[in-house]
Amino acid sequence: MSEETKNPITEKIESTKGGHFYKEIMKDFRIKESLHGCLNCGTCVANCPAAAFYDYSPREVCQMIIEGDEETIEEYMKGKIWNCAQCYSCKYRCPKENSAADIVMAMREIAVREGLAAEALAGYTRIAKLVLTRGNQLAPDMLSPDAFPDWGPRMIELSSKKMEMREELFEGFPGMNVVDRAWAAEDYTIYEMQKIWEESGALEKVGTVFPFLVDIVQEDMEDKAEEMEAKIQEKKEKLEASKK
């Protein structure tokens, strides 16, 4: 992809089609790279695990953007986009190098922004919280047997012995034997992560689904701000000096 690249296909559709969701989707610069016309050949569908089990089709995703049909787009925005497994098999196999995976990703972002994702993200609170307060996405504590009963009897055994087992495994590797997060990222690191979410506008977006989380993160940041900002200032000065 290059900045000057023009894609006559997306440009033509852009200028002729309407609809709110459609316009929002077309603003994402990835769409230009993800659609180069569609043969309706179904190669993507044949390789799509979501299409095997759901009323969902990557061919339809590409066609609906080319058609600009707001009704189908809405149907996808309100539910079907969450069926996609984000496996990129469609992109890999498409003879036109289209990527329904990327189109779906752009649509998921918009669904969250537009407040359409509450149902899809129910049950996602713990992970979102961990990302924003620990800098990790997963912790041993989250893998409790009651949350994953289908993972079998060994999960129960593992869960009760995980502390000793981890201690044995990670002897001599500081920061690795923790259970409330994946590794013990430093406070300063977590603060940097939170600042990225804030500065990029991503934190605000989290507020459309989990408003309480935004409060938690902002309070956490305020508590640490003075000490952490002093550290950042030091870093900035060091960086400036290295440029001279």
């Binding site: 990835r30 669904a111 969250v112 994702a117 992970i127 506008g201």
Partner: peptide, 13 residues
Amino acid sequence: WNYHASGLGNLVQ
């Protein structure tokens, strides 16, 4: 993982 699962976050983040 979070991004692909949830759409929370954005490309700049």
